[in-house]
Amino acid sequence: MFKKKALLPTIPRSQALNMIPVRNTEVEETPIPDDLIRLSYPLAIKPWFGQLAEKVGMWDKRPMIKHLELDEMGTFVWQLIDGEHSVRQIAEEFTRHYQVQPREAELSVTAFIKTIGQRGIIGLKD
């Protein structure tokens, strides 16, 4: 019950910035007013929860879809996630476009990428 969580491996910042975010092919993007984007992505369900939900009739095994509306800056970053730009390059583009400090852009972009990565919307490749 109180088993110590295994520490996740960490990688140096420079290496993390060189990684390339890749879109999940199952994610659908829909344009919404003001040139923004809504992402629809299948929800990853834990097997034990899936079984339980199925037994009590709450789930018919069809993938559950969640939606995420991006703001202007999120849309800007999403459009640069093309399997070619690295995190560093996206942060540099962000710095140029919004005229913010490089470190500030780096933190904003990495936080955004981490959030959508945790939701399974993107993956990262070396």
């Binding site: 703001d71 202007e72 800056m73 919004y98 005229q99 913010v100 500030e104």
Partner: peptide, 9 residues
């Protein structure tokens, strides 16, 4: 506060 272009849209 930044970016102003976004905040004051």
């Amino acid at each position: 506060f930044a970016p102003a272009s976004v905040l004051l849209k």
